[in-house]
Design a binder for these strands. Structure first.
Lengths: 236, 236
DNA sequence: CGGTTTATAATAGTGATACTATCATAACTT
DNA sequence: AAGTTATGATAGTATCACTATTATAAACCG
């Protein structure tokens, strides 16, 4: 069994002025920006606070990232690439399309399975900030421009992987991409709602199996929608 | 046929320091905050710009709303109440549960049907800012506190209305609230994605029938998931 | 090894933002 | 007519988002 693989995720180089994965300061920026965004929320998180936390200066951080919005999109890309990597890793030896899709859906809600060797990224906390604030990355007045620069390629690639898994079990499914993005967003929303706005979901926030329950929900959705004849329900 | 009804929507009074619907300045704040958020985006929108636009002062606006985040939540509440009002109005004389749910789902994507007499609210633009930035209202570090103050009651009420319509066609459906919130979010996301991140949806952004197409998607989702025997597909 | 890029730190500064406070005046109330 | 309340005018503060400059330390190169 593979526990951990040392692979650096490729992030769109336009997202940073200098590659943060390659230097000590850069890694500290990534590591502590995740922790501080989790701690303060994206709005209250500032480069000044980050500089103070890592014993550096605002000016030094600005040499890596244009501003906090771009840094945040960088983190989102890291997350999307990481999810896609894990889906591909875990479906590698699975032949059965239904089982492949099930595996993918489980990866969407579970950030606990360590599969990478990046000591400076806490995937669990990163997952939490994606759940709580992820949508802010692509809901901005500058989406179109940022999209042109390829800032959301990783999201689209992840979406395509899931859409293709759906098409593998039902080539005639009319909405593969909408279903894929809906699964991703629904995973995050139900995790978030269960913790903060419980009347917007049927998942219980204090359930120790929270992630599994949201996974069950996603499985229910994807197979009820995409399955041609409903045989999936019977198999384990 | 009812074209327009004069009803003031009830918004949680904790959201404002002074009721903006009751005064001329308040109405101008509501009217032009919608236009300016649409124009600049929520991040770039400031009370200073708003004050300048309506020929008033920052201090005066602060007498109505604590800050722009609360003002934004006020607008979201207005939107949610307005959608719920329209669902209830339009399903009033519809008996058939399947038809009732279809009607509700159509309301979620269509802001063009004028049904209220509030000259100072441009529902169409309000709908656009909800689609582009709505999630920011409830994704913040202070959700829990704001939730305790009832800032999201209107969203929950809307969610309940839809969940109940789902239960009316299938009392055994296991995820009524998750489905309801998913429909609302999926409506907004697919409208947004089709315009800005087209690879995340199957809906074409330049389609003149964009809203109808997203409505079709929602109908497909809700009936495939909730319907017990699949009879819905045959009827018009 | 010495010299030269290159990265970081230290510091300062600018304009905008998000407020808060005070006072004057206009408008509505009784 | 007097008193209450809403608004306008103005000023001020702390923080934010960024830019610029110079000094120093580290890495890299012939």
């Amino acid at each position: 069994m593979i526990n951990s693989v040392s692979v650096n995720l490729k992030i769109n180089p336009n997202l940073c002025l200098r590659d943060p994965q390659k230097t000590n300061l850069g890694q500290k920026i990534l590591q502590h920006s995740i922790l501080l965004i989790h701690e303060y929320g994206l709005e209250q998180f500032t480069f000044k606070k980050l500089a103070k936390r890592i014993d550096s200066t605002e000016a030094s951080i600005y040499r890596y990232f244009e501003n906090k919005h771009i840094l945040f999109i960088y983190l989102l890309n890291w997350y999307w690439e990481w999810v896609r990597f894990r889906i591909e890793l875990q479906t590698l030896n699975v032949k059965e399309p239904i089982q492949r899709l099930k595996t993918a859906v489980r990866v969407l809600v579970d950030a606990t399975q360590r599969s990478m060797d990046t000591a400076y990224i806490d995937e669990d906390i990163l997952h939490k900030i994606v759940v709580s604030e992820g949508t802010k990355g692509y809901h901005s007045i500058s989406v179109d421009e940022e999209n042109r620069e390829g800032f959301f390629l990783a999201y689209k690639a992840l979406c395509k992987v899931i859409a293709d898994l759906v098409l593998a079990i039902n080539p005639n499914f009319p909405y593969p991409r909408s279903l894929a993005s809906m699964l991703i967003e629904t995973a995050n929303n139900n995790l978030y709602f269960s913790m903060h706005l419980p009347r917007l979901t049927d998942i219980e926030g204090n359930d120790p199996d929270l992630n599994k329950k949201v996974g069950d929900l996603l499985e229910f959705i994807v197979f009820k929608l995409a399955d041609q004849d409903g045989t999936h329900v019977k198999d384990a």
